[in-house]
Nucleic acid binder design. Structure first.
Length: 419
RNA sequence: GUGAGCGUAGCCAAGAGGUCUAAGGCGCCUGGCUGUGGCCCAGGAGAUCGUGGGUUCGAAUCCCAUCGCUCACCCCA
């Protein structure tokens, strides 16, 4: 039996309503904030991610799908959405558009992980990015969007964590202090954290090992070692969030897994405990564009996992709009009946209504059953009598009432397409 | 990448070495109603018991491997 590759899955008709719910709310949210959609390729030149995500991160070192194409170019299946957006911004000359440029995207992303519920090798992200404005006002706008998305989706009891990790001015000093703090306690660190002390000291702060936890409480906090600019940025952000009455918690252990973040980082968590729970993550990345070889351009954004949003929408029993069944089902009998059915179906579809054709050769009873189980409200019956007379029998499946009318009258009585 | 649990038709599942050419329910198809759905009744299709190997006279059932899913770790959306 052939199956989808490990960690990849089909999105079947029955679950499409959840996808439409999330996509619809997200796209509308973006529209209401003045964001425009950008689609980028599923694969990129491998060097794009090497320069953005950063060597030393798990995402780049052990989770990318990279391959040589037939021309010998090294390509990588997109493991995240921000770097491609920045690349497209530069390549598309968006730096000469009115600034800032507000963009959003829906895209599949690929990471070679060990799959679990809510964690896939191919998953889908919705993300937004604001490029070309370094002010804390846009940080606040992006955080607001993230928070509003949860409400729009109907998700309850999610929590918002916010932190500032400084910039190239103050971070080196902070990291030195953090390293010093942990070096004194190196003996008590777990094996992973001993590694982190060398390659990624910020990650020491979110180690989940019991033995490492006590040390995190007293570790120096980045938000208390900010330079003047960062301090001001951080203060403004919190002030704006307060004005908008967005309930956030400052968490000094919040750091993000990608190297390019500066200033603001934030995350939204669902109520349930568990491993792969992060619903949404984002932050500011003022150095990224330069790292990619472009002009210095500030940026801020977030990305959220569609599968995880949907998982939570389902767990919380949020009511989502049902997919609408076609309005009509045509049950035809005999060659003449089928031919008239084709004509009627054309006419009905031209008005914008949906029509499902019954199966040729199936008994009327079988076709009626079919219509009933598909939940179609109106059945157009075309048998020998109707075909001979050029008429149709219309049966309302909810009331059980039916009547026979000439086909011209039936088609003429349909509502014309709107819009 | 590490550790653990699970794996019987599209779905839910009975089954614990011979009575399994694998029960039952949902769903699907057909008929009872030669042109009328939903309820009821009858019949039918659909499973190499995840896959491969082994133990045994005999394996869905025991063992090993492998694949997949789930949980924890790791990582992150």
């Amino acid at each position: 039996m052939l199956r989808a590759p490990r960690g990849a899955r089909d999105i079947r008709p029955d679950e499409q309503k959840y996808w439409r719910h999330v996509e619809g709310k997200a796209a509308d949210l973006a529209r209401r904030h003045g964001f425009r959609r950008l689609d980028t390729p599923v694969f990129e030149d491998s060097s794009l991610f090497a320069r953005s995500v950063g060597a030393g991160t798990d995402i780049l070192d052990k989770e990318t799908y990279s391959f040589l194409d037939r021309g010998g170019d090294s390509l990588t299946l997109r493991p995240e959405g921000t770097a491609p957006v920045c690349r497209a911004y530069m390549e598309g000359g968006m730096g000469s558009l009115p600034q800032p440029v507000r963009l959003y995207y829906f895209c599949p992303v690929f990471r070679y992980d060990r799959p679990q519920a809510g964690r896939y090798r191919q998953h889908h992200q919705f993300g937004v990015e604001v490029l070309g404005d370094g002010s804390p006002l846009v940080d606040a706008e992006v955080v607001r969007m993230a928070w509003a998305l949860m409400a729009d989706l109907g998700l309850k009891d999610v929590s918002l964590l916010v932190n500032s990790i400084g910039d190239s001015q103050c971070r080196p000093g902070y990291v030195r202090e953090l390293r010093a703090y942990y070096s004194e306690r190196a003996g008590r660190l777990c094996a992973d954290c001993k590694q982190r002390l060398d390659n990624n000291p910020l990650r020491l702060l979110d180690c989940k090992k019991e033995s490492c936890r006590p040390m995190q409480e007293d570790a120096p906090a980045s938000s208390e070692h900010l330079c003047a600019d960062c301090r001001e940025h951080w203060d403004y952000l919190r002030r704006y969030l307060d004005v908008m009455e967005i309930p956030y918690a400052v968490n000094h252990r919040l750091v993000r897994g990608l190297d390019y973040y500066t200033h603001t980082v934030f995350e939204i968590l669902p109520p349930e405990e568990g491993a792969q729970t992060t619903l949404l993550g984002g932050g500011r990345y003022d150095g990224l564009m330069e790292q990619l070889g472009g002009r210095p351009t500030p940026g801020v954004g977030f990305a959220t996992g569609m599968e995880r949003l949907i998982l939570n929408v389902q767990r919380q029993g949020v009511a989502v709009a049902e997919e609408e069944a076609p309005r009509y089902f045509i049950a035809a009998l005999g060659d003449e009946g089928v031919e008239l059915a084709l004509e009627i179906a054309d006419g009905v579809r031209a008005t914008g209504a949906g029509v499902t054709m019954g199966s040729r050769g199936r008994s009327l009873r079988g076709q009626m059953r079919n219509a009933g189980s598909l939940g179609i409200p109106q059945v157009i019956i075309i048998g020998r009598d109707e075909a001979a007379a050029g008429s149709v029998t219309l049966r309302d499946m909810t009331t059980g009432r039916q009547s026979t009318v000439p086909k011209g009258e039936f088609l003429g009585g349909l509502q014309p397409p709107s819009g």
